[in-house]
Design a binder for these strands. Structure first.
Length: 718
RNA sequence: GGGCGAGUGGUGGAAUGGCAGACACGAAGGACUUAAAAUCCUUUGGCCGUAAAAAGGCCGUGUGGGUUCGACUCCCACCUCGCCCACCA
């Protein structure tokens, strides 16, 4: 038999054309079939795609096609998360406008997605940097502003004094500017925040609703929200008698307090030390601590440093007089910005006390051994029995937590408090390439939101990019100067843009009405199609993107705009593709281009290999030889199928009489059905694409050996 | 320091309480070829066994314990690696 060639180019072009022609991936919204919303995280248009990106889209494509075959009405949309810092950096480096750079990248990546043969409803494509999209990102901002969920306050940014510009955390390398190596300083700017903190408890509670999410992602979110129960205890300043509150989760250690520390930013410091001889020293210390960049100050191994204020506070239960310090490890944003120091029972306090010769006082003795102040090498943070604790002596410390809290509350010197680690979401970016924040500042009328009728606030395209200095928007006079929406007098626009996470926290609603210019989304449609049945993306988004999307969904639900509280029913997080020991990425220089592989072996080979490489939720090592194996298999399969084309096109599909088959043919028939069953299970319940493919390979191997041992007549019956 | 995950042949992996190593890669040998590539066939965890083979046997899933008739799989402790977070009071 003459060998025919497996001409993947023709085959793939033919079928891609066929799918497009029959609109396989276009959703018929009037269909009576059950809906299925399959969503892949929309890509950032960074340049070109590499095979590592492909995993996400190929898995999404498999799910989409499988659900279509199972009879669902499947929505599988795609778009572009198109605002962001890399576009701006490209503009500075190579003088290409971010808009041009971004649109070119989108064009290139779109071509690549098409070549991969992944199926989307392209009629619904959205691009977050286009005015018809960011108009509605601005609308979301206005809704939050109207409902007191957006506010402005001073917050520190990383500031490079040499470039005179704000740096993102990732642009700070070892505490220095990545471009000029100048040490980065902290600088306070007025910035916009969303009150996600107000939703901490809801975001935590509703994790329980997410049965289709991986446990580890839910745990990560719960840890990030970081609820902790404790007590706010009122200490008093020795001289003035004024209250200084400390937050603690360990009220049982209250009798062991030997000092109290303040965050360098604590507002009480200034007044407290004003006019004292040590004032200058302390202010120097505060200044130094505040100039450590966030990254540096919170990095592991940063030396704990402090300075004595010369003042004392009074312990409300023991009446001990303890020194008041300022320490760089105390954070103003968490708790009250003041911490009680218990060296005997907190390791960090222990180190601090040893360094500055502060006393150690044991108030909890572990059972079975006795702690001694003079021989302790580290703090005892575990449980034990209360000692040196007045009326609470002799009870287990776990009980003392409750008893001391009750006592403090009854005396009015403490309050049970729940705190969350989750801070409000800083959405201001001193950048050009983002959605402008729709706010106007009028000298007469103050801070005003841009009326909805005036949206979008269009990002001007004629601006200058300089390697240093302020955001290009700050120099765009025609953008800044505007009329006050209230008094029509002279006013100025906000020049900060929004964090790109705002763009991506609602895009899944827009796919249902991507071109509607009258509203961000259509309530009836999103209520019908959401929550998303299956969301697929990288685990690196387990916290921020997924938490922000949940937050915005909850806000819109509370405002009555939508009828569901969680956006994503099932979540799948795929593993990374590793090459030469590192995640495949352009910056590491270890990318494999899909285009070259498609030219050589075809898209199906690449798709098959990506699915065969290993369990999809785990990281996988890329191996060029593995691609060849996938190619060989497809060749064999294609040869086998075309060999018998004339037979099975003639025989009706289910016209097989089992009784008439030979024993070998019967076995093969059974094995075929077993394979179908195995693949169905792999796709339905576990997403074991690799073993599904392996079982087809096995079946093909069996078909091959069947031909060898059986006379030709039996083949024809199959 | 906290959280999550993973340790199985030369490699990616399969088996999740019942024959460990499916499937694939690589390697070795052979067929075809002037030759190479491609393709096809055979072998391929280690050790013992044998003149060579075969039969057969023993060992083997990071380490040490445990549960069980039976453990890669479940439980406890430890070691190593990866990822995420981290001075959170």
């Amino acid at each position: 038999m003459p060998k025919r060639e497996y001409n993947f180019t023709d085959i793939e072009q033919k079928w891609q054309g066929f799918w497009e022609g029959c609109g396989l991936f276009h959703v018929d919204e009037n269909s009576t079939k059950e809906k299925f919303y399959c969503l892949v995280m929309f890509p950032y248009p960074s340049g070109t795609l590499h095979v590592g990106h492909g995993r996400n889209y190929i898995i999404g494509d498999v799910v989409t096609r499988y659900k279509i075959m199972k009879g669902y009405n499947v929505l599988s949309p795609i778009g572009w998360d198109a605002f962001g810092l890399p576009a701006e950096n490209a503009a500075i480096k190579s003088s290409v406008h971010p808009a041009i750079w971004t649109r070119n990248n989108i064009k290139a990546m779109k071509r690549q997605l098409h070549r991969w043969g992944v199926g989307y409803d392209w009629n619904r494509e959205i691009t977050s940097c286009e005015p018809n999209y960011y108009k509605w990102t601005q609308w979301i901002f206005l809704k939050l502003y109207e409902n007191n969920l957006a506010y402005k306050k001073k917050a520190a940014v990383n500031w490079c004094p040499s470039c005179a510009t704000v740096l993102a955390n990732e642009q700070v390398v070892n505490g220095c500017c990545e471009r000029c190596d100048t040490p980065v300083r902290q600088r306070d700017l007025e910035q916009w925040f969303f009150r996600i903190g107000q939703y901490s408890q809801k975001l935590l509670d509703d994790l329980a609703l997410l049965e289709g999410w991986p446990e580890r992602v839910k745990t990560m979110q719960a840890n990030w929200i970081g609820r902790s129960e404790g007590v706010r205890i009122d200490f008093r300043l020795e001289e003035s008698g004024k209250i200084l509150s400390c937050f603690t989760t360990r009220p049982d250690t209250l009798y062991g307090v030997t000092f109290v520390s303040l965050a360098p930013e604590h507002p009480v410091i200034g007044k407290l030390i004003s006019g004292t001889p040590q004032e200058k020293h302390i202010l120097n210390f505060v200044e130094k601590a505040r100039n450590q960049s966030m990254v540096e100050r919170t990095a592991e191994g940063t030396e704990k440093e402090g300075i004595f204020t010369g003042k004392y506070v009074i312990n409300p239960v023991s009446n001990d007089k303890v020194p008041l310090w300022v320490a760089n490890y105390v954070l103003m944003e968490y708790g009250t910005g003041a911490v009680m120091g218990v060296p005997a029972h907190d390791q960090r306090d222990f180190q601090f006390a040893k360094k500055y010769n502060l006393p150690v006082k044991i108030v909890i003795q572990p059972e079975g051994k006795e702690l001694n102040v003079n021989t302790m090498k580290e703090a005892h943070a575990d449980n034990g029995i209360q000692v040196n604790s007045g009326m609470f002596d002799g009870i287990p410390n776990t009980e003392a937590v409750r008893k001391i809290t009750e006592y403090l509350e009854s005396k009015g010197i403490g309050t049970k408090t729940v705190t969350y680690r989750l801070r409000d979401w800083l959405i201001s970016r001193q950048r050009y390439w983002g959605a402008p924040i729709p706010i106007v500042y009028c000298e007469k009328c103050g801070t005003l939101p841009v009326p909805e009728s005036q949206l979008p606030v269009v990002l001007p395209e004629e601006v200058e990019f300089k390697s240093h200095g302020m955001s290009p928007l700050a120099q765009a006079g025609s953008f800044i100067h505007t009329k006050c929406p209230k008094c029509s007098g002279m006013a100025q626009r906000e020049i900060d843009t929004m964090d790109t996470f705002v763009d991506s926290s609602w895009y899944f609603l827009r796919y249902l009405s991507p071109k509607d210019n009258t509203r961000p989304f259509i309530t009836e449609k999103v209520n019908k199609w959401l929550p998303v049945n299956q969301y697929i993306g990288g685990v690196e988004h387990a916290i921020l993107h997924l938490l922000y999307s949940r937050f915005i969904t909850k806000v819109l639900y509370d405002l009555g705009c939508i009828g569901f509280r969680e956006p994503f029913e099932h979540l799948f997080t795929q593993g990374m593709i590793i090459k030469d020991g590192a995640k495949m990425s352009k910056s590491k220089g270890n990318v494999v281009s899909p285009d070259i592989l498609i030219d050589k072996y075809g898209a199906d080979t690449q798709r098959l290999y990506i699915l065969f490489i290993g369990p999809p939720q785990k990281d996988a090592e890329w191996n060029d030889r593995g691609v060849l194996g996938a190619y060989r298999f497809l060749n064999r399969l294609w040869q086998k199928i075309t060999d018998y084309e004339d037979i099975y096109t003639k025989v009706p599909r289910f016209d097989i009489h089992i009784q008439e088959l030979s024993a070998e043919a019967k076995t093969l028939y059974r094995q075929t059905n077993q394979t179908v069953k195995k693949i169905t299970e792999d796709l339905d319940t576990s997403w074991h694409f690799n073993t599904a493919i392996a079982s087809i390979m096995e079946l093909l191997n069996k078909v091959d050996s069947f031909n060898v041992v059986t006379p030709h007549t039996d083949e024809e019956k199959i």
